[in-house]
Design a binder for these strands. Structure first.
Length: 589
RNA sequence: GGCCCUGUAGCUUAAUUGGUUAGAGUCCCGGACUGUCGAUCCGGAGGUUGCGGGUUCGAGUCCCGUCGGGGUCGCCA
């Protein structure tokens, strides 16, 4: 080793030792006669000093050191004078009195400073990711990510799970997200697809008797990006044999308890609370409600039907709904102009308007209050359990719009009104998702989760009579309003699997062609099985307290799915294209 | 595909809302300084205001287009 110690480990008790450190020049303070440098590596910082009286040659050389130079220094650990101790530094009791200096690599002037209190814009950071990754925030998020996967691997190992790898080059499957395709050189006109998840392969591992499987698996989806979505991301993929839903959930409960305890010192109530999909939609308008605060939706349909406000009564007549939420103490904080902003905001979710009432001691204050009798006003206040100073926001529309708009409004108000501790964690399971959803455009049923979910046992008969009412044995883990895991009990019976494909209008022939290898697996003694996949990136993001997944990925992609560091994706040689039997149809420049 | 925000020295930003030579901090370069730790002090360099066009006597500022970055709706089994 070129060093005897790291920059983070020297303490009082190391005084008088001769040591060698390597690291980056973090800060330098040149006083002519004495030069101080904070030397940095991933373990911490140690102040090193060059005294003119000790060695004028080395001291002279030290004066030319600049940010990010890489150096190796040897010297004596000395206690700092008592009044020169730096309490901000873990190693602040000591410093290194250098008597040998080797510049391992002189750095160009970095595009931005590592210790900057001002964070450079993200484009620049991504282009210069190597420098960016030296920033303490990213160093910490990478370390936390490692701790996280370490805990996960240990946990599943202790519970007899096997880590088995599945193919990256697989078949393209028709349902679901858009695939990233890889053309085959050997098979003309054929393509591999990168996995959207190892779903089918892990089911086959269950069929093969591996009983308990886990993998930290990279997944790829060629869809548009979001703050919490990257085209390639990492799942903690889990599958178990001879289990029911409760078994899967409690294994994950144990993992979450361990992660929150060991990484954040949090004792989350266990088992994690559960809510059916139907109840979540009714109470929060969302299948991923942020449970750090209350603010539930309330149905005002009864009053809306009777009132004199045409928008409300007509919505009810046409089979829509009028639902509302209470923004506690918002009456003073939200001006008319700000409420107009909220109206535009819910417009993004399809709501054509946002009715609001300021709650007073003896009634409601609103441009539309005149359409409501005193009796109705009091009934609304009673029903909403509103207090003077609150604002009641209502959306009247078809049910799906009231849900989407009010759920989004709830999240926004919760944040703006500071209704929760941003450092808190609140997890819950959402269960019993609908198995199918009717796609109006395609005029057919599509799988809500994926086509391998086992229907709820009580609903099997509905598959024929009323497919939209069939609940799946599926579940999502929601953390602070983010979908942090998702899974289901799978179909292990090829006949039921075929029935689902029929409903999805996937013909037997097509199913055989696309999923034949799964169906075949199910035919040779497939055991009941089920599993779940956790979004690792999102978990690390939440554990770090970030609202952006890129800060927990070493080399992330931009919203347009390019890597500003490597330049991917990029054009390739015509020769490579030809070898793959492809022809590019590009516009001439 | 839609909507919104954004782009000014290497970096973080200001520019009195269309008005003189685009200002500051930091970084960088030079000088001073033997106990700093956001070192301090003095001096210097550093700008095609992303790019292209338009309106105007005059554009960093307004308009159109375009490129990059971000947020979001659709999309994401």
């Amino acid at each position: 080793m070129l060093r005897t110690h790291t920059c983070g480990e020297l303490r009082k008790q190391d005084a008088d030792k001769q040591v060698t450190l390597c690291g980056w020049v973090d800060k330098y303070r040149d006083h002519a006669g004495i030069v101080f440098i904070d030397l940095r590596d991933r373990y911490g910082k140690t102040q090193i000093k060059f005294n003119l009286e000790d060695n004028s040659d080395i001291q002279q050389q030290a004066r030319s050191l600049r940010h990010e130079d890489v150096v190796r220094v040897t010297g004596d650990v000395v206690l700092r004078p008592e009044d020169m101790v730096n309490p901000k530094l873990d190693s602040g009791d000591i410093e290194l009195r250098v008597n040998e200096l080797e510049v391992l690599n002189k750095s160009l002037t970095p595009p931005f400073l590592i210790d900057a209190t001002e964070i450079p814009n993200e484009e620049l950071r991504l282009k210069n990711r190597v420098v960016d990754l030296r920033r303490p925030e990213l160093q910490e998020s990478m370390m936390l990510r490692h701790q996280c996967t370490k805990i996960i691997r240990d946990y599943f190992h202790e519970k007899d799970f096997l880590d088995i790898e599945t193919p990256i080059l697989g078949p393209s499957t028709p349902e679901g997200a858009r695939d990233y395709l890889v053309p085959s050189r050997i098979h003309e006109g054929c393509f591999y697809a990168l996995p959207q998840s190892p779903q089918i392969f892990k089911q086959l591992l269950m069929c093969a008797g591996f009983d308990r499987y886990m993998q930290i698996a990279r997944c790829f989806r060629d869809e548009d990006l979001r703050a919490d979505r990257q085209p390639e991301f990492t799942q903690i993929d889990v599958e178990m044999t001879f289990v029911e839903q409760d078994d899967v959930l409690s294994v994950i409960d144990g993992l979450i308890a361990k992660m929150l305890k060991e990484l954040k010192g949090i004792d989350h109530p266990m088992p994690l609370p559960r809510l059916t999909h139907a109840e979540a939609m009714e109470r929060f308008g969302s299948d991923k409600p942020d449970m750090r605060f209350e603010m539930e939706l309330t149905d005002l349909g009864e009053i809306a039907s009777q009132c004199g406000f045409g928008v409300f009564s007509k919505t009810m007549e046409s089979g829509g709904r009028v639902r509302a939420l209470v923004a506690p103490g918002a009456a003073e904080k939200y001006t008319r102009k700000m409420i107009d902003g909220l109206t535009a905001f819910v417009g993004d979710y399809g709501a054509r308007g946002l009715a609001f009432f300021r709650v007073k001691e003896n009634g409601l204050d609103s441009p539309i209050a005149k359409f409501f009798t005193e009796e109705h006003q009091l009934a609304i206040i009673e029903k909403m359990q509103a207090q003077p100073g609150d604002i009641i926001f209502c959306v009247a529309d078809k049910e799906s719009v009231t849900s989407a708009a009010l759920a989004a409004l709830r999240n926004r108000l919760g944040k703006e009104l500071e209704l929760y501790d941003p450092k808190a964690f609140s997890c819950l399971w959402i269960t019993e998702f609908p198995l199918l959803q009717f796609d109006e455009d395609a005029n057919r049923w599509v799988a809500e989760h994926h086509p391998f979910c086992y229907p709820h046992l009580d609903d099997i008969e509905l598959l024929e009579s009323d497919p939209g009412k069939v609940r799946a044995q599926s579940y999502d883990l929601v953390v602070n309003g983010y979908e942090a895991a998702s899974g289901s009990i799978r179909i292990h019976d090829p006949l039921i699997q075929q029935k689902i494909f029929d409903l999805l209008q996937v013909s037997a022939e097509e199913a055989e062609g696309r999923f034949g290898f799964l169906l075949e697996g199910l035919r040779y003694g497939a055991p009941p099985h089920g599993g779940v996949a956790l979004g690792l990136d999102r978990w690390v993001m939440l554990l770090c307290g970030y609202d952006n997944i890129r800060d927990v990925i070493a080399f992330p992609k931009t919203q347009k799915a390019s890597d500003l560091l490597s330049g991917a994706p990029s054009r390739v040689d015509e020769k490579q294209v030809k070898e793959l039997h492809l022809q590019l149809d590009l516009e001439e420049e």
